[in-house]
Design a protein around this nucleic acid. Sequence first.
DNA 1: CAGTGGTCTAGACCACCAT
DNA 2: TGGTGGTCTAGACCACTGC
Lengths: 238, 238
Amino acid sequence: MPKTAAPLYEQIRQLIVAALAAGEWRPGDALPSEAALAQRFGASPGTVRRALDELAAEHLVERRQGSGTFVSTHSAPRQQFRFLRLVADDDAGGFTRELLGCRRLRAIAAVARALDIRTSEPVIEVRRMLHRRGRPVVLEEMWLPERHFEGLSADVITAHAGTLYALFEARFGVHMVRAEEKLRAVAATAEAAALLQVAPGEPLLSVERLAFTYGDRPVELRRGLYYTSSDHYRNELN
Amino acid sequence: MPKTAAPLYEQIRQLIVAALAAGEWRPGDALPSEAALAQRFGASPGTVRRALDELAAEHLVERRQGSGTFVSTHSAPRQQFRFLRLVADDDAGGFTRELLGCRRLRAIAAVARALDIRTSEPVIEVRRMLHRRGRPVVLEEMWLPERHFEGLSADVITAHAGTLYALFEARFGVHMVRAEEKLRAVAATAEAAALLQVAPGEPLLSVERLAFTYGDRPVELRRGLYYTSSDHYRNELN
DNA sequence: CAGTGGTCTAGACCACCAT
DNA sequence: TGGTGGTCTAGACCACTGC
């Protein structure tokens, strides 16, 4: 227990997050105006504004002067690369996606622990590759708790044009808010080498990601292998 | 040119950064109070507060309720790991430093370009290793423009107990504000393998960093090779 | 033009810190 | 106890958007 109650703007921030988690406003929707929210929460406009500014800093909402405050969506072009830090050294070209597989299975202990579910609870495993200029660059697999992604299948993925996170959001109402990644250098296994068209033992960048939705609930575990001969993982330290 | 002038709080923010760059207040020093700064810049306290809040978000200053606003310093324990993202898988132990070399040379084109200096301008090259539990984990070399690090030598580094950035700040007045990193997986060269006590060809995480001081001026280029068998590079995506 | 967020001000009161 | 930053309020005015 904190000694004193959280400040009002923080309480309001949490109430708005709860409303987002409950789906009161969907990604892309406009939130009520500052004045309307101030009314609703019984606070002054300045206090509501502070809460909204914090949410904007976390990329949960997006503010547009003259038009309103909107729930962030992975469909927006600006969000396209928020979770993909691999860029070409010469900064050229985007990726094309190739689905390798999508199947239902039971979570092994490590996956269950990360996703905070019970071991052997059903999860959906997706495997895919990303290509740049026709060359495979990324091989990744991910595990998603089935209870949040009921009906996810190869067909559903193939039928969708945008990013996976845009699909998850549009189809399952699961919006990714933030992620934690662990990076290491590993040697390509025979299988990975064949898929990525490199020699076995070739150094690859391993990226293990745990992604969270509203309320810091983990909903995706992902492991990527990046071939970094002419691409690199870009990071900013602040 | 922006259509309209920058907002007042942004102008004040820039004036404070300029004062920090000029050394008007040194790392660890207290800034004048909000009221005093408001007086000085002819703005209301709320506007100055906004400027200070932005600076705090960038880690340029640190606010302590009841005592004041202070210039951030790399000597502070909390800043110790801001620029070192490598952590042990089991989260245990810190690093010990071993200096391999420190010499003066002339910048090659690639280094000069990154540091925004002229080719063949003098730079200081530092090479070192980091060990955890007696095992070498990081091999890195860095290049610093001599004009900002006059008198840096092996003796100066060895005599210093804390991090390099704390030394740079205390001795040369160069405070690192932010950095950009490019990560890739590479194979250990014979030389790197020998120093890191791994087999040649072993996958290593290559981390190339460009660090900036006040006013976004690049002052350090660094290249690290991380042995990531029981350590990983931790990252947060927001 | 009406409605939205963005800036700037002014002031009250509180929590915390040093002394 | 005096000074600091932290919270909260109230309101004026501006800039931008969309109709």
